[in-house]
Design a protein around this nucleic acid. Structure first.
Lengths: 260, 260
DNA sequence: ATTACTAATACACGAGTAA
DNA sequence: TTTACTCGTGTATTAGTAA
C-alpha cells in the first residue's frame, strides 16, 4: 500500500496485464499462442504463466479445448491497480515541495496522539490506511525551514478536531509525502501538521502505514528527503468511504473545526 | 504505439520503475542493496539489472564507489510511459460502446482516401500516427447496427474537410477503438466515420498504425469486437503538434469545415 | 486448432570474492 | 561500505509430443 508494490513476479504481472487488456477484467477468451506473441515467449511459457497466475489466485480460468476463458480475480485487479498507482506516482503526482531533515527522537508523544480513536478513525477513513503507531520526527534544515511555509498552498487531507469527556483535540492537515532515504529507499506517508501551532517551524512529523525507521533503515541523525506531493490523493485504491471496520464509527454530527 | 508495449524485459522494467520512483527521472543516488530489497532479489541481481538497463539505453549511470548516480534516459522514460499508457487503458478508458462485425473486403477505396495528403497530414497530427495504408472494413451485425447510433455521443477527433484543385473532400470523425479478435489478440486504432453519409449504417471502417489484418490474423468473414472508447485521446505520448516530418505541411489558412 | 506434459538446454540467480 | 566479477547451481525456458 505504501511503497512500490513488490509485485509477485514481473513476468507474471506482464502476462496478467495483457490478459486484462484483452478484456480479462470481465471475461475474455485468450489463446496461449496470442499471449505468447505479446510476451515475446513461447506458447508453453504463456500456458505456464496462466497456470502460475491461477495458482497465485490472480486469475480464474476455464479451459475449453479451443482456448480458455479467463477473468482476473479481485486480487489480480488489486495487483494491477498497485502497478497503476506506481505509474501514476511517476507521471501524475508532481512533487510540489522538497524538504530535508534529520531524524530525531521522540516517538512517544506522536505515538500517543495518532493512536487516539478520534484521530485513528479519520486516518483510516481519509488516508486509506491505519498509521503505524508512531511518528517519524524530523528536524528540518535551514533551507527547508525557510521553504516550509509553501506547504500551506498545497492540497491536504483535513483531519477534524474532536473531543472526549476530558478535553478537545485540535484539527490538523495531512500532506501526502514520499520519503526518500539517502540510499534510494523510499516510502509513502503523510506529513501531519497541526492547524494551531505555528511555533516549531523546524519540526515535521510524518506518519505512514509501515514503520518508517525500519523500512528506511533510519537512526537518529540520518537525513532524509521529504517530497510533498501536489495532489494528496489517498493510496487506497477504490473505496474512500469504507472504514467501518476500523476504529470508532464517526459521528456525522460531531462538532468539527473551531476548537481552542 | 498501438498494442501493449512489448516491454523489453519485465524484470528490467520493474527495476527501471523503481529507479524512477526513487527519483531517477531527474537524477538520484541508488544502492544495489536498496534496489535488491525492492525487487526481492540479491544485490548482485540488482547490480546486473542496472547494467542491463544501461546497455539497453534506458538508464545512465555514474558509479561512484559508495553507490551510483542514475538517471532514466528519454528512451527509458518512453518505455515507462508505454507501461503507464497500458494501465491507463485498463483503468481509465472506460469502453463506451461495444460493436461486433465481420471483416469484409474492399481495402481499395479506403486505402485511396486515407493516403491522400489532406487526410494523411491530419491523421499524423491529430491521431499521433500515420495509418497503415488501408482500412479494415467491417459489416456490423444486427445488434451492432442498432446500437451504432450511440457513437454520435462519444468524443471523437475531428478530421476537417479539405480540397485540392479537382474536388473537395468531406470532414469525418475518428473514434478511438480497440479491436479484439476472438483469440484475444487486440489492436488499437480509430473508427473513421464520414460526417455526411448516413446510409451504410451497417458498415464500419477502421484505421490503425499497423496492418490490422496481419496483426490480428484476420480474413474475410472473421468476426471481431470493436470497443469504442469514451475518451479519444491519441496514443502519441507527449508531443501533439510534432508532425512536420510526416506528409504535407498543413496550411494554417486552409478553408476548413463546411463543404458540400 | 487447442492446453500442457516431459525432457534437454540455456539462462538467470546468488554465494563468494576482489577491487 | 560500495560495485561487479566468476562460478556452481537451480530454475525457467523451449522443443517435442500427447491428449
Amino acid at each position: 500500500m505504501s511503497e512500490a508494490t513488490a509485485a509477485a513476479d514481473p513476468a507474471a504481472m506482464a502476462a496478467l496485464k495483457h490478459v486484462a487488456l484483452a478484456g480479462g477484467l470481465t471475461e475474455t477468451k485468450v489463446s496461449c499462442a496470442a499471449l505468447g506473441d505479446r510476451l515475446d515467449a513461447s506458447t508453453q511459457t504463456a500456458s505456464r504463466r496462466l497456470q502460475t497466475l491461477e495458482s497465485a489466485g490472480l486469475l480464474e480460468r476455464d479451459v475449453v479445448g479451443d482456448g480458455q476463458w479467463v477473468r482476473v480475480t479481485d486480487a489480480g485487479e488489486a495487483a494491477l491497480r498497485g502497478e497503476y498507482a506506481d505509474y501514476r506516482r511517476l507521471f501524475e503526482s508532481d512533487v510540489e515541495l522538497v524538504l530535508r531533515g534529520a531524524v530525531t527522537g521522540g516517538m512517544g508523544e506522536g505515538r500517543h496522539y495518532i493512536t487516539l480513536p478520534g484521530y485513528a478513525a479519520q486516518f483510516a477513513a481519509r488516508l486509506g490506511y491505519e498509521p503505524f503507531p508512531g511518528t517519524l520526527n524530523l528536524e528540518l534544515d535551514a533551507e527547508s525551514v525557510r521553504r516550509r511555509g509553501e506547504i500551506a498552498g498545497i492540497d491536504a487531507v483535513p483531519i477534524d478536531a474532536w473531543e472526549d469527556e476530558d478535553r478537545t483535540y485540535g484539527a490538523a492537515a495531512c500532506y501526502a509525502v514520499t520519503l526518500v532515504a539517502d540510499d534510494g529507499r523510499y516510502e509513502d506517508g503523510h506529513a501531519i501538521v497541526p492547524d494551531r501551532t505555528h511555533h516549531d517551524d523546524d519540526k515535521l512529523e510524518v506518519i505512514a502505514p509501515d514503520e518508517l525507521r525500519a523500512e528506511l533503515d533510519l537512526t537518529d541523525g540520518d537525513t532524509i528527503e521529504v517530497r510533498v506531493e501536489a495532489t494528496s490523493r489517498a493510496d487506497a485504491p477504490d473505496d474512500p468511504d469504507a472504514f467501518e471496520d476500523s476504529g470508532e464509527p464517526e459521528d456525522p454530527d460531531e462538532p468539527l473545526g473551531e476548537v481552542a
